[in-house]
């Protein structure tokens, strides 16, 4: 059995006097996906906000988030080293596809700019998009943009990944191939992943454990 890497313990999230989540816990292992499903307003995206450290101050959240046994809920988003993907790929429109990937690639003393470019170009090669490296993201299809957004998130070397309905804007025929690509990359990166989705097919395609949230009354 693998070590549970991302661990949420006894989480409670409230807004004003409304409790969105109460005594909620889960754990996700490396390379594993946990899908969180439920109706609108049940707190799925709010939970991702808590896990990523981007939760609005209007919410009151308690509970421990542990990464590899260490509590991280007090850390800000930057220090948590979390990768986030939204419905929209959010590729930076003024940067070329290569620059979008280079933006995420960390720089350190041991890596030269040339090596970083090679690394990013390698990722574009994997997608067969090396010819589009110096073009703006607008020339790419929705599926290609989604793939680059995932690679960009992973190039930043996150310790865990949060996916907020990343397939919902894709056409049905594209959706399956992007799902497979995403699962493949997550397993390759070997990091825990939390997926929020409305679609049961998304959850099943990602071979994930599923938690269904209910609206709290």
């Amino acid at each position: 059995m693998r070590t549970p890497l991302l661990d949420l313990k006894r989480c409670q999230i409230k807004i004003n006097s409304t409790v969105l989540l109460d005594d909620f816990s889960f754990h996700v292992n490396n390379g594993e996906v946990l899908s969180i499903m439920g109706p609108s307003g049940c707190g799925k995206s709010t939970l991702l906000g808590y896990l990523s450290g981007t939760l609005s101050h209007d919410f009151i959240a308690t509970g421990q988030i542990e990464l590899d046994g260490k509590p991280i809920q007090q850390l800000n988003t930057i220090k948590r080293k979390v990768g986030i993907l939204y419905q929209s790929p959010l590729l930076f429109p003024h940067m070329t596809n290569l620059e979008n990937l280079l933006f995420a690639t960390p720089s350190n003393k041991n890596t030269s700019h040339k090596e970083r470019v090679e690394m990013a170009m390698g990722k574009l090669n994997e997608l067969g998009l090396e010819t589009k490296a110096h073009e703006l993201p607008e020339v790419l299809s929705g599926g290609q943009q989604a793939r680059i957004a995932l690679l960009r998130a992973l190039l930043a070397e996150p310790q865990y990944l949060l996916l907020d309905e990343p397939f919902s804007k894709l056409d049905p025929e594209l959706r399956q191939s992007v799902r497979s690509f995403t699962l493949e990359q997550i397993q390759k990166a070997n990091i825990p992943t939390v997926l929020v989705t409305h679609d049961m097919e998304d959850a099943q395609a990602m071979q994930s454990k599923i938690i269904t949230l209910q609206t709290q009354n």
């Binding site: 990523s52 450290g53 800000n76 988003t77 986030i84 959010l90 930076f92 930043a156």
Partner: peptide, 16 residues
């Protein structure tokens, strides 16, 4: 430009 989302994406990559 959805600045809030861009700031979050940037933060997730370690950018202040």
């Amino acid at each position: 430009l959805k600045p809030q989302a861009l700031l979050q994406v940037g933060a997730s990559m370690g950018y202040p």
